[in-house]
Design a binder for these strands. Structure first.
Length: 536
RNA sequence: GCCCCCGUAGCUCAGUGGAUAGAGCAACUGCCUUCUAAGCAGAUGGUCGCAGGUUCGAAUCCUGCCGGGGGCGCCA
């Protein structure tokens, strides 16, 4: 939340009068961590003191008295503290006004901003090969991509969610081989897909004994399952983009022609190479193998040409697993070779998710599928669990522990807060207490510390969403939602809303307060893709 | 060898330039005749991997080292 405009204005004026630049990048008006340091605090004196050759506390004193003289709205007192911080204490009226605004804006409007500058963004994520069920890591990075999309949408971006389907080449052949071997009752080799799902598919396969045909059929079936698994997690894609379609449309050849025209390809050892070493990669890369097949990279560059130059996305965010880290420099080089500013392509790497029980491998089929984890914990818990920490953090899941905790999972803690508020609202109605309209309620009756604390947390949301968006870190929303839920539970314990001997006007003010909290929880949970139940 | 990520309480993780470092789980003590105890309150628990550097100020930025994970294909 930005500081009250009058306070910002007064501070700027004060700084200017002292010959200081209010737009100095390191100068901040921010909320201190502890309430003992005021509602807002400026570090201007610390930043500027050296240049002035005056002790910081002295500068701070001058700033303090100038701001005080300007008497900005809501300002109660100013103090100089620590090494030279100027701390501002505001009247509660500031918080009451903020709450009022939140209630006016509601679920739709609150914490909605426009950072987009009109950008169309594509986020490509999951994109797991259709050769087996999704694993837990796909769910982790999938929740990340989808929540990032939701957050960016709330910040005004036009977002397309896309899944790149790897439905071509050696994998499909290998899948087809595995299927046919299973069907014929033979052993699947070491380099085949050994999971039991292959046997299940083999039993259903009615097509000819053609490797590619069987492979494509199986991939199609698997993709259907992937789609339904993802939808259990509230992940829905706008576009499923087929790699085969890129190859069959001749787009790969067109792309290579384009690169050739730019003088960035050459032939050697019967293969076609990209001069990627000249574009930041550690070496040159093969685009067309000596057997005439395009490499994965060639298809990927053609795909990114489609993203940037055909469909015209302003910005593309690719979410990959860290095991694909090696292909990043090549892809960036390829994009640059197309003449696209590589700054328009962001690649976020999700660190690996593993199980305490041991390593997972899709080929060997001994992994815990995302589906079974969802069966185990429920979709909300899986989604929230995956959005608790940064994707830069490698995760080791201890299933026993997670299962044991699932009844005391953070997800219930948060949802319970939302359900409790709904319950209060139901109770009020049952008692015949109707909420008066917003222009009739006197929010200034909210003076208890537990009430004010709640508003202080609630008003952080817009800034949290903005930060989560620009840092591409959805888990910041999770952190905030947990804090709000905790603050609410504490409030709930301390103060009654309806009934008891609470005066009617206070009940009204508190009903609106908890509605504000409900709005915050609802928005936060929605951005995380977690449901907000009205009862539990 | 080179590249990326991580190292914070017993465990899982927040905090990434501000003033006494936070939460959940585990362990301890209290709180339900009152709007949902899936909750609340209190106490316990930390050389922020190590060593330098930058800064008025570093868990946060820079360098080196140690430890863990991932990657360096005419595989995808």
């Amino acid at each position: 939340m930005p500081a009250p405009p009058q306070l910002q204005q007064a501070l700027s004026t004060a700084l200017l009068e002292l010959g200081l630049d209010p737009n100095e990048p390191k100068v901040r008006l921010s909320r201190p961590a502890t309430s003992g340091h005021g509602d807002w605090s400026s570090n201007a004196a610390l930043v500027c003191a050296k240049r002035l050759g005056v002790p910081p506390r002295e500068v701070a004193n001058q700033i303090a008295s100038k701001v005080e003289a300007l008497q900005p709205a809501h300002l109660k007192s100013v103090e100089v503290a620590g090494a030279g911080f100027v701390n501002f204490y505001l009247f509660d009226s500031w918080l009451h006004e903020e709450l009022q605004q939140i209630l006016v804006q509601g679920e739709e409007g609150y914490a909605r901003t426009d950072l987009s500058k009109g950008e169309r963004v594509q986020i490509e994520f999951v994109s797991a090969n259709p050769t087996g069920p999704l694993h837990v890591g796909n769910g982790w990075w999938g929740a990340y991509g989808d929540s990032l999309a939701r957050i960016m949408e709330r910040c005004g971006f036009d977002v397309t969610r896309e899944y790149y389907v790897n439905d071509t080449g050696g994998q499909i052949r290998r899948l087809g081989e595995s299927l046919l071997k299973r069907k014929a009752g033979q052993q699947v080799g070491e380099d085949g897909y050994q999971g039991s799902y292959v046997a299940e598919l083999a039993a259903q396969y009615r097509g000819p004994d053609d490797t590619m045909e069987a492979g494509r059929w199986a991939a199609g079936r698997i993709l259907e399952n992937i789609r339904s698994t993802l939808s259990r997690l509230n992940i829905v894609f706008d576009e499923w983009f087929s790699q085969a379609s890129i190859e069959e449309s001749g787009a790969v050849q067109e792309t290579i022609d384009l690169l050739d025209k730019r003088g960035l390809v050459y032939e050697e050892d019967g293969a076609i190479w990209l001069r990627s070493a000249a574009l930041g990669d550690s070496r040159d890369r093969v685009l067309i193998k000596s057997n005439g097949d395009p490499t994965y990279l060639a298809g990927d560059i053609a795909y990114h040409r489609n993203k940037f130059l055909i469909r015209g996305f302003d910005r593309v965010i690719d979410v990959f697993g860290a095991d694909h880290h090696g292909q990043v420099p090549s892809l960036l080089a390829g994009v640059q070779a197309l003449g696209v500013d590589p700054g328009r392509l962001e690649i976020r790497l999700g660190q690996m998710v593993s199980l305490a029980e041991g390593k997972m491998s899709k080929r060997q089929g001994n992994f815990v599928s995302l589906d079974s984890l969802i069966d185990d914990l429920g979709p909300d818990a899986v989604r929230l669990l995956s959005l608790m920490s940064s994707i830069d953090q490698a995760t080791t899941l201890d299933l026993d522990l997670v299962r044991k905790q699932s009844m005391e999972n953070p997800v219930y803690y948060i949802q319970y807060a939302h359900a409790r508020i709904s319950s209060i609202q139901r109770f009020a109605q049952a008692m015949g207490v109707e909420r008066v309209s917003l222009d009739k309620v006197d929010l200034s009756l909210l003076t208890e510390e537990a009430e004010l604390r709640l508003i202080r947390v609630l008003i952080k949301l817009p800034e949290v969403v903005i930060e989560a968006c620009s840092d591409r870190e959805p888990h910041k929303v999770t952190t905030w939602v947990r804090e709000l839920a905790g603050t609410f539970h504490s409030f709930y314990h301390d103060l009654r809303v309806v009934g008891g001997d609470v005066p009617a006007e206070i009940t009204q003010a508190r009903l609106w307060l908890v509605e504000g909290v409900r709005i915050g929880l609802f928005i936060g949970l929605h951005l995380l893709g977690v449901s907000a139940p009205s009862s539990m």
